[in-house]
């Protein structure tokens, strides 16, 4: 408490140091790329110019950066929503009736260990267009959401269930008032993890899947042309969107789960 003032200036200091670190990094990057004059190390300004070109003129096929972003996010969104719609109720159901999950483990568990990316070739053969991507995202996001929900339902504090039970509450009331609120934070964490895996999957699916639009295929196109600066733009955009979505999740978690003791963020 006595260090309150110090902590305040420390925070400002941290911010300052970060700005300094970033400047030094960009400066070093510029100098090294100037000296080396390498095709493989573009200067920060080349990258910035590529970004502006991609926004205004689009890529080699004239598809703008905005279009790539739109396509990727739309695919993610469709698959992710489908994963939530299926994963959350199924997780709650199988959590409430452990016997169902315990008896179908022999089918569910092996599928869980097949990486979603390994499904891409199968999906290319069996499905077409948009459904390919939505299916892969669905598969990638489903298991974290489903398993997170299921384990959470199983670990609801038994005393919390006994409280309404001791007043003679009906099963549905207990599910509504105790089970669902208590699992909600874990469902959210599952959704956040699922969203992350969804991003990994969409990248791979777009690189392998054969359509011309999407951030994944965009950076692969430029890899074939050995245009590092455009690849970097793509990667930075991917990172920024990932960061932004993660921040939204954290913001909502903080808002909705005020009652939680502490929220672990990683």
């Amino acid at each position: 408490m006595a260090n309150d003032k110090n902590a305040g200036s420390g925070k400002l200091g941290t911010f300052g140091y970060n700005a300094l670190a970033l400047s030094i990094f960009i400066l070093l990057w510029t100098i090294v790329s100037w000296i080396s004059e390498s095709l493989f190390l573009p200067t920060p300004w080349t990258v910035l110019k590529s970004f502006l070109d991609l926004c205004t003129y689009g890529d080699v096929e004239g598809i703008s950066l905005g279009m790539h972003i739109f396509k990727s996010t739309l695919r993610i969104f469709a698959g992710f929503v489908a994963a939530c719609i299926l994963g959350i109720p199924l997780g709650i159901l199988m959590g409430l009736y452990p016997r169902v999950y315990d008896s179908t483990k022999s089918v569910i568990e092996p599928i869980r260990f097949i990486p979603p990316v390994a499904w891409i070739p199968l999906v290319i053969v069996l499905l077409v267009g948009f459904s390919r991507y939505a299916f892969i995202i669905w598969l990638g996001a489903f298991f974290p959401i489903f398993i997170g929900t299921l384990l959470s339902v199983r670990s609801v504090n038994p005393t919390h269930i006994d409280v309404p039970r001791s007043f003679g509450a009906k099963r549905l009331y207990i599910i509504r008032k105790i089970v669902i609120p208590s699992t909600l934070p874990d469902i959210f964490t599952g959704m956040r993890v699922g969203m992350g895996i969804g991003w990994d999957c969409i990248m791979a699916a777009e690189m392998i899947g054969g359509e011309n639009e999407g951030l994944g295929v965009m950076i692969l196109k430029y890899a074939e042309l050995i245009r590092i600066e455009d690849i970097m733009v793509g990667m930075i955009v991917i990172g920024a969107i990932g960061f932004f979505i993660n921040e939204i999740f954290i913001f909502v978690e903080r808002r909705v789960f005020k009652w939680k003791e502490a929220i672990v963020i990683s």
Binding site: N18, M203, M207, G216, L220, M235, G239, A240, G242
Partner: peptide, 23 residues
């Protein structure tokens, strides 16, 4: 003090590094 250099990279999907690695 150097978070700003490390954190952004964390959010780039590792698969997005594949084209870079190919080049």
């Amino acid at each position: 003090r150097t978070r700003i250099l490390v954190e952004p990279i964390r959010f780039i999907s590792p698969i997005a590094w594949i084209p870079m690695a190919i080049v």
